[in-house]
């Protein structure tokens, strides 16, 4: 029985600055940039090159977090309610501390002013991570008429495929108009015209494969912010690589908690033991039933 549908799909990409990529890698072509960052070792190497030229790789040490956390091989909590930190997340932790120490990134929250300040034309961050809604709505600074750099961006998959969010349409039990509700939901997901409007006017990525294919193959369709790149085509390709396993109900808060507590260690204000201890305290406060070490 269908309980809910999505009308928007959110495969996420690595959003990089064309001008910085040209300076560091010699090219801004998405396919070539992707080849340069196709796995984490290569990504870290590019970070070193970027730093040598005075750039930041990312604007926040937590920018890459989601890429790691979407691709874990084990959930946050095992069958006996024990907390377990997956290997992929531990890789992120090492990368975050490493990048922070070497100055490849800043220690701040991804929604903070410090992070978004790097989106201006004067900003030094080479890449951000996010889906269509991120570069269309959350990069206001980059789109600013005076100080922004719209058109100087492009997307590629990055070291691993990941997703971020999505919007769901849910019908409440006991509604007195179920047929109309079904009709509304159907329109949003199946009506090609509506889905096309979503892509054209709202620059989103709809969940209708046929519509997406249509735009992906259109050679004239492009996003101005991305310098004319056909983002739908990219997303259609990436969507197939996304893994959706090992999710738990604890994910959102545990991810946030780990990021904020690990940040203190990256900044150097606390030791590694203290940071982990604070994280466990946080887990106990949010989810008393999880057993922490």
């Amino acid at each position: 029985m269908v309980k809910g549908v999505s009308f928007q799909c959110c495969p996420a990409a690595m959003i990089y600055r064309r001008s910085i990529a040209k300076d560091v890698l010699g090219t801004d072509d998405p396919a070539q940039v992707q080849a340069a960052v196709s796995d984490w070792d290569k990504f870290n190497a590019v970070a070193e090159q970027a730093a040598a030229k005075g750039y930041l790789m990312t604007a926040s040490e937590a920018a890459t977090y989601r890429v790691f956390s979407n691709n874990v091989s084990a959930p946050w909590v095992d069958g006996n309610n024990n907390l377990q930190i997956d290997e992929n997340i531990q890789t992120w932790m090492k990368q975050a501390k490493d990048f922070s120490d070497k100055g490849y990134t800043q220690d701040c929250d991804i929604w903070s002013d410090e992070c978004t300040a790097q989106m201006f034309a004067s900003g030094k961050a080479m890449c951000y991570f996010g889906p269509a809604w991120y570069f269309n709505f959350s990069m206001g600074n980059a789109q600013d008429a005076e100080k922004g750099c719209s058109g100087d961006w492009a997307i590629c998959q990055g070291p691993q495929a990941h997703f971020w969010g999505g919007t769901w349409l849910l019908a409440a039990a006991g509604s007195d108009n179920p047929t109309m509700l079904a009709d509304v939901m159907n329109t949003f997901i199946n009506d090609e015209e509506v889905c096309s409007l979503l892509v054209e006017k709202e620059a989103q990525f709809s969940n209708n494969k046929a519509v997406n294919a249509k735009f992906a193959e259109d050679p004239n369709f492009g996003n101005d912010f991305l310098g004319g790149q056909n983002d739908t085509a990219m997303f259609v390709e990436m969507a197939g690589n996304i893994k959706f396993e090992n999710q738990t109900i604890y994910d959102q808060l545990l991810n946030e908690g780990l990021q904020s507590n690990w940040r203190e260690y990256c900044k150097g204000t606390v030791s590694e033991e203290e940071a982990m201890s604070n994280f466990y305290k946080y887990v106990n406060e949010k989810y008393p039933s999880i057993v922490t070490p």
Partner: peptide
Amino acid sequence: NGLGTPNR
């Protein structure tokens, strides 16, 4: 932001 930084 609720964290009581640094180190609570």
